[in-house]
Design a protein around this nucleic acid. Sequence first.
DNA 1: ATGACTGCAAAGACTTTGCATCTTT
DNA 2: AAAGATGCAAAGTCTTTGCAGTCAT
Lengths: 140, 140
Amino acid sequence: MERAVRYSKKREAILAAIQGTRCHPSAEWVYKQLKPQHPDLSLGTVYRNLVFFQQRGLIQSVGVIQGQERFDAALAPHSHFVCNCCGAVLDLPDIAPDSALDQTVSRQYELTVQRHELTFYGLCPSCSDPQQYLKEETSS
Amino acid sequence: MERAVRYSKKREAILAAIQGTRCHPSAEWVYKQLKPQHPDLSLGTVYRNLVFFQQRGLIQSVGVIQGQERFDAALAPHSHFVCNCCGAVLDLPDIAPDSALDQTVSRQYELTVQRHELTFYGLCPSCSDPQQYLKEETSS
DNA sequence: ATGACTGCAAAGACTTTGCATCTTT
DNA sequence: AAAGATGCAAAGTCTTTGCAGTCAT
């Protein structure tokens, strides 16, 4: 017998938070985002739901960046850019991975390739701007 | 004044261990590998030297896989395959990232791109073999 | 002798999990 | 009422770090 799934207001809010941002959030980001509207939300619930959504393919991990796992609401195939300075993750919608490559690699190396990822690393506009250090703090 | 660097037998052994394997080791792997020959080696020393080698470009992080950061002795540009089952990391020497892509992305998105990585995910030969479950345990 | 390197253990950061309680059906 | 979902806090894993002792120069 399969395990039943029940509605939960917090689960809904967690998924909406991830789908509603482009920042590829971490568990903590989701938690802080929702805490004001859901004062009794706990981090454990966020983590449990992240696993839940991943298992159902609603979200995907983008990897661990600066110590925290980051997530993406899975949509069209695309690549990512990661800022080595602030850890920001940006979508590169025009840089789509070539799925034919999977087959090439599968054959050439006798592996079962399921997918591949193309990730760029560097500095985001804000971190590569030398003037940033002269500006006032605008975020904490 | 720059900080001097001194010789250390353990540092040498740690680098040699990483350069001498294709397994893209974690800190713990290096530690366990060297412990028999260096009974007084500590994990802290391994971690400190991993940082040391990274800062000097002798090794590179391949990312965090199943909770552990994995490293690679940096050589020719190549791609990686990661087994979603056992976490094995394989080099794909023939799948070289196209460095021209960095410039393309830099211009198109106004980012400072330093490098990119192409990583394939799937099952390694051993994990995709259905008979593996019938075999005796050969490793712990 | 100086100061870099290390062992050890404590501390940190992130994530998972057990259990009692609350919710959904 | 049954069973899934959550809050809370403890536990777990991996990594970093402070300090005193050791070693290279």
